[in-house]
């Protein structure tokens, strides 16, 4: 009987770890370099193929346009509350304002808000939609609740919800990006990028990154990975990840 506790703990540990040991390919990548940026608490980053610039949003409800080296070029005069996600689509930028549950459509040229969409979510104020991207495979926007629980919501172009998916492969999701037919999800707490099926969001590969508080994910025109880190106020640059070569 004296072995009940340790025995039980071992069983618990095996049960606990079993979900993490599914047959998913894994890799690890290291950043080539990083830079500090003058964007306070950068929470997401998106790459604009047209200009080669980065759009970065801040927890303070600010939107910045930066060059590829992170130098601030412009700041939008339109302020929100708690910007957590940004996506570039055509002539527009779409920004997720987490606390008030809104998505703003900015005109890329003027950096002014042209439209506001309400995207209700009843979960924790600070665990709302931290990720926004356009899924070109399914021609829909997706917003992802950060955690407790992580859920993937698909929206049409007017941000009317069309479908939702449960997602249990990570503790949290802080950014999402569709790139070359793959859906990439970034987990802050698990410190990894998850390459997913863009139709089902099933995880195909897990790529570990060793970064404190990664919150934003983008791919430049060469497939190089850019990650923004909130607490350290940095951008990290990686070479293209193995999955991009598929």
């Amino acid at each position: 009987m004296r072995y009940i506790l340790p025995g039980s703990l071992i069983i618990l540990s095996l049960l606990s770890s079993s979900y993490a040991k599914k047959n998913i390919a894994s890799a690890k990548i290291k950043a080539n370099n990083h830079i500090s940026i003058k964007v306070p608490e950068p929470s997401d980053v998106a790459y604009d193929a047209e200009t080669g610039h980065l759009f970065i949003v801040s927890d303070n409800g600010l939107l910045f346009e930066c060059d590829i080296n992170g130098k601030v070029l412009r700041r939008s005069p339109d302020k929100g509350m708690d910007f957590e996600g940004v996506e570039v689509k055509g002539d527009y930028l779409y920004v997720s304002d987490e606390s008030p549950r809104r998505v703003y459509r900015y005109k890329k040229k003027t950096l002014r808000v042209e439209n506001t969409y309400s995207v209700p979510y009843w979960g924790p104020r600070n665990s709302g939609f931290e990720s926004i991207t356009y899924n070109e495979t399914k021609h829909c926007f997706i917003l992802i609740s950060e955690k407790n629980p992580v859920k993937i919501y698909e929206y049409n172009d007017d941000f009317q919800q069309v479908k939702e998916y449960s997602f249990n492969a990570a503790k949290d999701i802080s950014s999402a990006r569709w790139y070359k037919g793959q859906m990439y999800l970034l987990s802050d707490e698990d410190m990894c990028i998850l390459r997913c099926d863009p139709n089902t969001y099933e995880v195909r590969e897990k790529i570990k990154i060793n970064i404190l508080n990664p919150e934003g994910l983008a791919f430049d025109h060469d497939g190089n990975v850019v990650i923004s880190a909130d607490d350290l106020q940095r951008l990290y640059f990686f070479k293209s990840i193995p999955a991009n070569n598929e």
Binding site: L15, R101, W122, G123, P124, S127, K147, N148, P149
Partner: peptide, 18 residues
């Protein structure tokens, strides 16, 4: 605890009204 580990889903969370 063993039972909980088998049945528990993600922790419920706070509720937000806007």
């Amino acid at each position: 605890a063993l039972l909980l580990s088998l049945i528990a889903g993600p922790a419920s969370a706070q509720f937000t009204f806007t």
